[in-house]
Design a protein around this nucleic acid. Structure first.
Length: 405
DNA sequence: ATGTCC
């Protein structure tokens, strides 16, 4: 039963296996995938998820297995970006009739893109003690990195910990199929991860020039295993991923605390909890080999492992359980995937369209969020069907509150 | 996505 996989053969390269039956794949994304698949250190084949679309640096919704080399622009600058979700003991009837105050409480508790009064965009003026403690746990690793790369010291590291960021980073209150209340959020490694990503992308491009390596595209610049830059990047990217995971943990604690101040009924949180990256690289074993797996807009889906696949604003989201499909390097999609660029979406749709599409969600509906309109994304049901042999659905969530960065 | 040393 391999009729769920579409094969893209690549001249002078490894094949690309795509779990995209019944969903559109842009020609530009195919071309980008074929370029990446030509790199000699790709291990066996590339795997492509049904939310695939053209990305900067590498294709969103792709899994890039490599042996003996690593491509920093494939991970990109939003290192460790991912999702966290927790199920609470609350049900829909425990939520207040008016959800505006709950949204305001969350907006107050977590600095985000438009937090008024923040000295820098969306950061703490003075981080709370819980953030200080979390930063203390990250500091030894950071010091090892900045000893070699001192320019990384000058980043918003400590005061960005526990903050949301901007763009498509969001916090939601959701209900599942049994009307149970979940909190869910999407964020990454903020300014410091961005600085680490950019620094090593520059270093890789400089290495390519120094060794006169010709590439199909400059974003395929890589480090070779055994080199100092390779070892340093593996350390730094791993640290940024740890920062991102803890960033989500801090925010979730503060979202729960904010909700407790608004919702009168006592409740327990983290009845079920999931915290997963969808933009990262790590060492894994596949087909009996220790390799590096870069997931760019893709989630780990080892057998039994829980993951999160968010839909667009106003659409369904899913808590999923991995089926451990080895051909896909045990991966699944990270969302619905865009069908049009943010610029196209802003041209095509109006504020009125966005108000209609998100009528059932307590959220912003201004012109700055039109690019997140559900119609700019692929049909999430088709995306889930295309990856039915990668993950099974455990919970289906719908948003009732959404805070955008 | 982030920061504003482009």
């Amino acid at each position: 039963m391999q009729n769920d996989v579409q094969l893209l053969e690549v001249a002078n390269g490894k094949p690309v296996k795509m779990w995209t039956v019944g969903v559109p794949v842009e020609p530009e994304a195919r071309e980008q995938l074929q370029m990446t698949a030509q790199m000699p250190f790709i291990f066996r084949h590339m795997a492509v998820m049904p939310d695939v679309h053209l990305g900067k640096g590498s294709t969103i919704g792709s899994v890039i297995p490599t042996q003996g080399a690593i491509i920093p622009a494939a991970v990109g600058v939003d290192i460790g970006c991912g999702m966290m979700a927790v199920r609470t003991s609350l049900t829909a009837s425990d939520l207040p009739e008016q959800l505006g105050p709950l949204r305001s409480a969350i907006e107050q508790a977590v600095p985000h893109g438009r937090t008024p009064g923040a000295r820098d965009k969306g950061s703490w003026n003075t981080p709370p003690e819980t953030v200080d403690a979390m930063w203390a746990s990250l500091l030894p690793g950071f010091s090892r990195i900045t000893e070699k790369y001192p320019r990384l010291k000058n980043t918003n590291n400590h005061k960005h910990l526990g903050t949301l960021g901007t763009g498509n980073h969001f916090i939601e209150v959701c209900l599942d199929e049994a009307d149970r209340v979940w909190f869910m959020l999407h964020s990454g490694s903020r300014g410091v991860g961005n600085a680490i990503g950019n620094l090593f992308i520059e270093l890789a491009q400089a290495d390519m020039r120094q060794h006169m390596v010709n590439l199909p595209h400059r974003d395929l610049a890589y480090f070779t295993e055994g080199s100092q830059h390779f070892e340093d990047y593996v350390e730094a990217v791993g640290w940024a991923q740890d920062y991102a995971r803890r960033n989500r943990m801090v925010m979730m604690q503060n979202v729960i605390a904010a909700a407790r101040a608004v919702i009168t009924k006592p409740f327990s949180a983290e009845v079920e909890a999931v915290n997963c990256h969808h933009n990262y690289v790590q060492k894994e074993t596949h087909f009996g080999n220790e390799i590096l797996v870069t997931r760019k807009g893709a989630v780990s889906a080892q057998k039994g492992q829980l993951g999160i696949i968010p839909g667009s604003m106003g659409a369904k989201s899913f808590i999923v359980r991995g089926l451990g499909n080895e051909e896909a390097f045990c991966s699944c999609s990270h969302g619905a995937g865009r069908t049009m660029s943010r610029t196209q979406a802003k041209k095509r749709f109006t504020v009125a369209d966005q108000i209609e599409a998100t009528a059932h969600v307590e959220c912003r509906k201004d012109e700055d969020v039109i690019d997140e309109i559900p119609m700019a994304y692929k049909d999430i049901d088709a995306v889930m069907h295309a990856q039915r042999n990668l993950v099974e659905v455990v919970h289906t969530l719908r948003q009732v509150v959404c805070v955008k960065g």
